[in-house]
Amino acid sequence: MEKKSFQFAADTGVPPQVGPFSHATRWGDMLFITGQMPTSPSSGKMVDGDVTAQARQVRRNLEAVLKQFNLTLDASLMVRVYLASFEDYDAFNQEYASWFQGPLPSRTCVGTTGLAVGALVEIDLIAGIS
């Protein structure tokens, strides 16, 4: 199998990179999406607000990457969530629960001491391509 990496232009709704990485890497029928931050695709700046507002922007950013492959969040097999404060766990879960129409993917949620660009939340995922 061949590994293929993808980067996307701003007009796709995918925010600019904040480091040396690919937005997504495809290997066979699996798509690995790099951790998305709560950054605006148009400005590249982090959105204001609490963990719920930031999670909503992260969702939009994940959806923009998935859209490039004609996928939705329901293609997610495994999701990793990083929270800058585990005190935000319940508020984040309340928002996250509405993201999926089908069965929930597997998930790991990690509390950290800090995230890039001062974010409160970052999420990466692995999706299946059928």
Rank of each mutant, 00 (worst) to 15 (best):
M1N: 12
M1K: 11
K3Y: 11
K3H: 09
K3Q: 13
K3A: 15
K3F: 13
K4Q: 13
F6V: 04
Q7L: 14
A9S: 14
A10P: 08
D11Y: 08
D11A: 11
T12C: 06
T12N: 08
T12F: 07
G13F: 01
G13Y: 07
P15D: 10
P15R: 07
P15Y: 02
P16A: 11
Q17L: 15
V18M: 11
V18R: 10
G19K: 06
P20I: 13
P20T: 12
P20K: 13
S22L: 07
S22A: 15
H23L: 01
A24K: 06
A24M: 00
W27A: 11
W27Y: 12
G28E: 14
D29A: 12
L31S: 02
L31M: 07
L31F: 01
L31D: 04
T34G: 02
G35K: 07
G35I: 04
G35L: 06
Q36Y: 00
Q36V: 03
Q36H: 07
P38D: 09
T39H: 08
T39W: 01
T39A: 06
T39L: 10
S40R: 08
P41C: 11
S42A: 14
S43F: 08
S43P: 01
M46K: 15
M46R: 15
V47D: 04
G49W: 10
G49L: 09
V51Y: 02
V51E: 03
V51H: 01
A55P: 03
A55N: 00
Q57N: 03
R59C: 01
R59F: 03
N61Q: 10
L62A: 05
L62F: 03
E63W: 05
E63F: 04
L66T: 02
L66G: 01
L66S: 04
K67F: 08
Q68V: 00
F69T: 00
N70G: 09
L71I: 05
T72E: 00
L73V: 09
D74L: 08
A75I: 02
A75P: 02
M78Q: 09
M78L: 15
V79C: 04
V79T: 11
V81K: 02
L83N: 00
L83G: 03
F86R: 12
D88K: 02
Y89M: 11
D90P: 01
F92S: 05
N93Q: 14
N93T: 02
Q94M: 02
E95I: 05
E95Y: 04
Y96H: 10
A97D: 13
A97T: 10
S98E: 14
W99V: 08
W99H: 08
W99G: 05
W99K: 03
W99L: 04
Q101S: 13
Q101H: 14
G102Q: 14
G102K: 14
P103F: 01
P103H: 10
P103I: 04
P103D: 14
P105M: 03
P105L: 02
R107T: 10
C109D: 05
T112M: 15
T113V: 12
G114C: 10
L115K: 04
L115T: 09
L115F: 05
L115I: 09
A116N: 11
G118S: 10
G118L: 10
G118N: 09
L120F: 03
L120R: 14
V121N: 00
V121S: 05
V121I: 15
E122C: 14
I123Q: 07
D124Q: 02
D124C: 13
L125K: 06
I126F: 08
A127T: 08
A127L: 05
A127D: 03
A127W: 02
G128F: 08
G128V: 10
G128H: 11
I129Q: 07
